[in-house]
């Protein structure tokens, strides 16, 4: 009688263990969050694996992974952090590849800035210019390169406000506190995003390509789900979604597709 009572609990417990092993923990750089949600939706249509997403800045994830955070996959906003993790021996060999190349956009939520974004920047006709901290975020570093190539560093510097990542930079502009902001194009595109204002797509030649790498972490050695998701990332289907959100083609599959 007593045993029967416990049996239910034990079965429940075993069940949760099974459910646990089916899920994949994925750390995702903030700029890729919209895109990743669409990708996961697509992936889960045809797969039993559950993807548990965490969004944040790559630097924080790097620190957490070094201290044993239980992520199986890490989608960084740059190449430096996956590279460092590789050197730390925390990555499964040969798992790293570039999943997306980011595009930088200068965005304004002000209706009267439509079609005038580039001019407004060059004239200095704005209150604040938001950018992600160049020291921390690759999109911030790219923004700095653009300002350098336009010779606008000295004239605009006193009007900079810096977000600690690209999501916060977006917030500064969307709340109307900054007239202009350098953000990721992917934050503005995609089906579910409500558009405000307008943007200037910064020409690629004005900054180094924002290559974003993914790695399979050592804790994923036995996790088939993580591998399945990584394979999915290289399919045409996934690459199509990534391109839809404004990223450039990254792997050979997509290069063929583009040609």
């Amino acid at each position: 009688m007593k045993f029967k009572k416990w049996l239910g609990l034990i079965v429940l417990f075993l069940f949760t263990l099974c459910a646990e092993s089916k899920s994949v923990h994925v750390a995702v750089a903030a700029n890729f969050s919209n895109t990743m949600k669409s990708l996961v939706k697509e992936f889960e249509k045809t797969s039993d694996y559950q993807i548990a997403l965490s969004f944040g800045s790559s630097g924080k994830f790097y620190a957490q992974i070094k201290q044993g955070a239980p992520y199986e996959l890490f989608f960084s906003a740059d190449q430096a952090k996956p590279d460092a993790l590789e050197k730390d021996g925390l990555v499964i060999a040969n798992s790293r590849f570039t999943y997306a190349i980011g595009r930088l956009a200068l965005w304004s939520a002000r209706p009267d800035f439509v079609n005038k974004i580039e001019t407004k920047l060059k004239q200095g006709a704005f209150n604040k210019l938001a950018l992600a901290n160049p020291k921390l975020a690759p999109y911030g570093a790219a923004a700095l390169e653009v300002l350098t190539s336009l010779a606008l560093i000295d004239t605009t510097q006193s009007n900079w406000v810096m977000g600690e990542n690209i999501a916060q930079t977006y917030q500064f502009v969307s709340s109307g506190n900054a007239d202009l902001g350098f953000i990721a194009l992917s934050q503005l595109l995609g089906k579910n995003t409500l558009q405000q204002g307008s943007y200037w797509l910064v020409p690629n030649i004005m900054h180094h390509p924002i290559k974003q790498d993914v790695v399979l972490l050592r804790s994923a050695k036995k996790n088939q789900g993580a591998k399945a998701f990584l394979d999915f990332m290289q399919t045409n289907r996934a690459q199509h979604i990534i391109a839809e959100y404004g990223y450039l083609a990254s792997n050979s599959l997509n290069v063929e597709h583009e040609l």
Binding site: G59, A63, K135, L136
Partner: peptide, 11 residues
């Protein structure tokens, strides 16, 4: 506190 956070983020 923000400076510490920035240092950590920048490794």
């Amino acid at each position: 506190s923000v400076q510490i956070y920035d240092h950590v983020e920048a490794l």
